[in-house]
């Protein structure tokens, strides 16, 4: 049986101060090396013995990984703490991200955990993923072969797996500027407070009067990776919004998701509630989009 009172694994530890040093350390220590940010996922996984790195590289002292700035949208350093992102997004044009982090874990986790950690851990239920997906976030990765940028959509490859190479780290998350007439929202369904999602959903949309000119929908915990539902987006974009259309769209959401049975819920339940959650979130975003205000 595992022992959650202590960490049984033995490993080397480094706390470098520059991105370059991080990459060097990762390269030097090879496969067994692992980045640690807040550690809220990683230490748990090590306690569960699902992971036993031989070397941890702490990135919390690295300069230039913790920032939030407006520059053609929003740019967030990967090691920025969830608390800081949450505070920034409160009453901002990125309120869905505020809502997602508010529902993610609890204050202690916001103080410890980072946004990059939430993404790199690649849980299907990662709560920042749906809002970031609908904000068309791009992530910037740096490795021994330099820098690359890709859409968050293309970042996740499966449960706890991403395109990250062993020697790569995420340095920045870049969100599209929402523009005028935009609204967004996030909701999650869980068993109790401070719990992992059974279903989560984020919607970003733009409206002109009764017409939805742009729409993006993403869900969490209903497939191996946080997923966009593009058929639904296409169905809604350019259309006048009526109850019946949203109801129809929610049925499609139900069909598109690929949930499983697990300890937290059943596939059947998730399918139904994905539709409900989508509908609730859609209307919330729609109402917020009036006059382009949130």
């Amino acid at each position: 049986m595992i022992n959650t009172r202590i960490l049984t694994q033995e490993f080397d530890y480094f706390a470098p101060e520059s991105i370059k040093q991080v990459v060097e350390l990762l390269e030097r220590h090879g496969e067994g090396a692992r980045v640690i940010a807040g550690g809220t996922d990683l230490i748990n996984q090590m306690k569960e013995e699902k992971m036993s790195p031989s070397c941890l590289v702490n990135i919390m002292n690295v300069k230039g990984l913790r920032y939030i700035k407006e520059d053609e949208g929003l740019r967030i350093g990967a090691a920025t703490k969830l608390r800081d992102v949450r505070a920034y997004c409160f009453k901002s044009r990125y309120v869905a991200l505020y809502e997602a982090i508010s529902s993610l874990g609890k204050p202690q986790v916001w103080n410890m955990g980072t946004i990059g950690g939430n993404l790199c851990n690649a849980s299907p239920a990662a709560d920042t993923a749906p809002p970031l997906l609908v904000f068309k976030a791009r992530v910037k990765l740096v490795g021994k072969d330099g820098e690359r940028e890709l859409l968050l959509e293309d970042f996740f490859t499966g449960v706890n797996s991403t395109v990250l190479q062993p020697t790569e780290l995420m340095v920045e998350i870049h969100l599209d500027p929402p523009g005028d007439g935009a609204g967004n929202a996030f909701l999650k369904v869980a068993r109790v407070g401070a719990d992992i999602s059974k279903v989560s959903c984020a919607v970003f949309l733009k409206r002109q009067g009764r017409t939805c000119t742009e729409c993006r929908v993403a869900l969490g915990a209903v497939a191996p990776v946080p997923m966009r539902v593009k058929v639904v987006e296409e169905m809604i974009e350019g259309r006048e919004i009526e109850e019946s259309l949203v109801a129809k769209a929610s049925e499609i959401v139900s069909e598109e998701v690929k949930p499983i049975d697990d300890i937290r819920s059943s596939a059947e339940y998730r399918r139904q509630v994905a539709a409900v959650t989508f509908r609730d979130v859609f209307w919330k975003a729609w109402d917020r989009a009036i006059g382009g205000k949130n």
Binding site: M1, T4, R191, V192, G193, A194, D195, I196, I263
Partner: peptide, 17 residues
């Protein structure tokens, strides 16, 4: 135990509930 014998998946109510 299907809950993994931990409080991650054995849930009790919290203040917000």
């Amino acid at each position: 135990l299907t809950c993994g014998a931990s409080l991650v998946d054995y849930k009790t109510y919290t203040a917000v509930d």
